[in-house]
Design a protein around this nucleic acid. Structure first.
Lengths: 211, 211
DNA sequence: CAAAATTAATCAATCGTTTGATTAATAAAA
DNA sequence: TTTTATTAATCAAACGATTGATTAATTTTG
């Protein structure tokens, strides 16, 4: 078997595992189920990834690289205002979140557990880079007198992360509140995405920006 | 043994189970662990509640009654404005959420799963009563010309629910963002609660209410 | 052939549940 | 009021099923 195929097969397992984990949680997803759905022998999971936890970590490792580069491009552009940065931040954030909603579920599913592990710390570290990026922009807006100086920066970030999280992760509730199936890719792409972008901008602008 | 003791013991099991389930999830929490932590024989769980799922459902049944009464008192008061209702709504909501944060975790933990079951539908129905109460107030504000008519009612509700959810449920992240241990009851009560109330009011007022 | 990939079979451990026996509490009968 | 019967509560032990992991044998690849 060629390397290309091997990589493809590993990637295929990761794709399936990502989906199954996000749907059923870490404990709820069994290695038999994952291997069955991926069409490979169960022992292959251990052969490739060592253990169930190794497989779980591998899913994250695969995505981390794509995270940071996107963050760097936002906020480091000195040619635009803090609010323009925030707008671009929101656009990119919503865009990325919806594209990787399966991965987002996977992350937050384990972060809602209270038990602190090496795994949860690792995940939190990754997400905190996003937080700092947002905070940097908020602080810049305040320093330059564009944003109100009495804004609650931490809770503002909570709003951004929390709203996204609830929409994507609590699909039972969000589907009923929104009146559409939140899992429908077409609705996500054509309706919710632009609506979400517009709403977050308007909400944050009215709160952050001085009148 | 008196009835009082029996009820107390069942309640004690429910208390412990609620905590363990919320910390470890449905799959992650074993009946042995729950019974061990509650100091009762493992068979008692099945004796009292029939099954693990029966125990899980019993936790919900116990809380449902307290939900609806609180909702009725808000919004049905015709002597105050829509915005005042919203303020009272936020106050009561934050108050209740923080008091029952363990239960909140338990609810949302299973609602983040994609699988639709009788259980998840039941939970969603309960939460939707909250949604309708908020929506009624939003609509009233729009109808009476107090709120902007182009507000996004559904996503506004998503903000309220989502922000609360992220703060309480994703304690790993929210603790790091807020700079305090979110699980510390003292911090919750004396600092986060008033801060949360003030922030949500200011955020929503600047977005909803006409200038 | 030798190395890597893949398989079926099997491992001990743990899962939720059930069992039969025992004790404590209540009701009925004398 | 005793004595007897009935019910509820509790327990240790064991059930079959499933878990993640490992083994040894087989196939594929270079």
């Amino acid at each position: 078997m060629m390397d290309k195929d091997k990589i493809d097969k590993k990637d295929h397992i990761l794709d399936v595992a990502e989906k199954v984990f996000s749907e059923l949680g870490y404990d709820g997803a069994s290695t038999r189920m994952i291997s069955g759905e991926a069409g490979v022998n169960m022992a292959m999971l251990n052969y490739y990834f060592g253990s169930k936890e190794g497989l779980y970590l591998a899913i994250f490792e695969r995505k981390i690289s794509a995270f940071r580069t996107l963050l760097q491009n936002i906020g480091n552009d000195d040619s635009i205002s803090a609010w323009d940065k925030m707008e671009r931040c929101i656009d990119n954030y919503v865009e990325r979140i919806i594209a990787n909603n399966c991965f987002q579920k996977l992350i937050n599913r384990e972060l809602t557990l209270n038990k602190r592990t090496e795994l949860t710390d690792k995940m939190a570290n990754i997400l905190m880079t996003n937080v700092h990026e947002f905070k940097k922009i908020l602080q810049e807006g305040v320093d330059k007198g564009l944003f109100c100086k009495d804004i609650d920066q931490e809770l503002t970030i909570m709003v951004i992360f929390g709203t996204k999280n609830y929409l994507i992760n609590s699909s039972h509730m969000s589907s009923r509140v929104m009146g559409h199936d939140i899992l429908d890719p077409n609705y996500l792409e054509t309706q919710l995405k632009p609506r979400m972008k517009a709403f977050m901008k308007q909400l944050l602008k009215s709160y952050l920006v001085k009148q």
